[in-house]
Design a protein around this nucleic acid. Sequence first.
DNA 1: TAATGTATATAGACCGATTGGTATAATTTT
DNA 2: AAAATTATACCAATCGGTCTATATACATTA
Lengths: 198, 198
Amino acid sequence: MSEKSNARDNIISTAARLFFSQGYHATGLSQIVKESQAPKGSLYHYFPNGKEELASICIQQTNELILQKFEDTFAAHKSAADGIHQFVQDMAHETEAAGFTGFLPFSFWAAVETSCISQNLRKMCQGVFADWQRVIARQLIHEGMETAKAEDTGLLIISLLEGALIISLTNQDKQPLLTASNYMAAVTKHAKEIQSHP
Amino acid sequence: MSEKSNARDNIISTAARLFFSQGYHATGLSQIVKESQAPKGSLYHYFPNGKEELASICIQQTNELILQKFEDTFAAHKSAADGIHQFVQDMAHETEAAGFTGFLPFSFWAAVETSCISQNLRKMCQGVFADWQRVIARQLIHEGMETAKAEDTGLLIISLLEGALIISLTNQDKQPLLTASNYMAAVTKHAKEIQSHP
DNA sequence: TAATGTATATAGACCGATTGGTATAATTTT
DNA sequence: AAAATTATACCAATCGGTCTATATACATTA
């Protein structure tokens, strides 16, 4: 009972959805207020430091969401390769189901835009990417992969994933994500063959 | 001789630099006017349809720049694998040299943001990605790769490239691009082994 | 060659709308 | 009563875009 501060949560979820689908600058506070059906007074009350603070919280919260999904997916599959494959497959279908316009937690292309705003936000986005890379690498290491190679592979996977997502969103076509997902399995399974030297 | 319409060119190059480094919405017309040292009257005169028309021209022009660089790089290397590798290596070094803030022609992360503005701009960005994919695929086919596989590989390469660029820009570290570049060579060289089935 | 006509190009004030943000007052909840 | 929350009016600044007046360039004439 007693839904405490429903307005605050509504603002955060709405803001996150808008930030990660439209971008930071394209999303006005007025739009957040309107779509979240929260009063503007509350926005100032809950986030006294304004838009940047709100964005910061959105990044944190979205990151936790993604990390949880990574761990859930890994827990539900025998191999890391299968897990990653399923993760991207899910993303492809969710993207399509949302009409290529809706909220995609993994959609961190706005990290570049956000990084221009302040060093603080930039560091946060950097931390998000590092978290994802670490979660993947840990799983690979657990399966016997050499540490350095696992870290490289983790970085490659999130690079490919983000890139494919950008193209899928732009093209409004899930194929780039599907192609990436099929390839992902190969990356992790045959890492030894495809990993190259500096 | 007689430098015709220097103002127009200045506006385009400045706008392209700002759009692709900051994003569309983060870049105001006033900033473009100020940094290009062109008069605001000229902006209206040369681009009567406003900001969107200007962005459209920037996308076209930047695309031609990249396509030319792709062809030059391929012409200068024996194998597609070597060419791609060099292409990404160059990009990594240019990114660092520019302090991770400057203009990067390949930086098309803003395609997602741009796609929200109008269907026309979205289609243009889609065409840009398709062009890049085609140029790479053509080279691979020329080297004997099966058509369908070459197209998939081209898509994977530009996905990985864009993703790695995003992370490099966010982290202000060229390593993600370098890691991708080393891996690229493996992708094209060992395509048969790593390409997986749907 | 000189004068004129006609694009083209530039200057810069100006527009309503919206931006992020602030203030204070009224309301609700505890 | 006290504290937390919401309502609303308001702010300067900037947004993209428009306007007219002027200046420059270039071609056509005389």
